[in-house]
Amino acid sequence: MQQYFEVRWHGRGGQGAKTAALLFGEAAMETGKYIQAFPEYGPERTGAPVKAYNRLSDGPIRIHTQVINPDVVVVLDASLLESINVTEGLKDNGALIVNTQEKAAAIKEKLRVTNAKVAVVDATKIAVEILKKNVPNTVMLGAMVKITGVLEWDSALASIKEKLEVKFRGRTEIIEGNVEAIKRAYDEVEVA
């Protein structure tokens, strides 16, 4: 059977977990991959825990099942670590990437992760400093691309910028701010 690269995004309603999955998917498509990006819908409300997924492949993707064993888990909100088992199903040698102020080693110990690497970046701080708003979703894409190595950095960044240009037509400040924040996350992400 075909090999897939699968991602699970954890966030809270309103933080843009779905948007991050869509942006990551489209960026991956631009590099020639076949992609899926889909949210998990339930009775979600602003602030409630939400999930979104990616599935990437070099060939056409035919399976339409939930992602059960992700290669990567991205957590947009560290407060979710208290209430949700974010490492559930995470593949051996996979990666957990968390938006937090804590050190990677501390998160690794707290969640007792032994089979995967843990990476952290303070995406909230970066977002607040550069974008003046707590919107960590696009910022995390920088950490995501670096840690996974599944996408080529330059083309991924170019693609994300292109999508932002469509979304924020003419609002240069937001577009450039997002790009800067993504680059900073790429530089600042720390691994344990």
């Binding site: 498509m29 076949y34 992609i35 990006a37 889909f38 819908y41 339409h64």
Partner: peptide, 12 residues
């Protein structure tokens, strides 16, 4: 199409 599985899943 199948609800959410296809309707809300982005594909190439």
């Amino acid at each position: 199409t199948d609800a959410f599985i296809i309707s809300h899943a982005m594909e190439r």
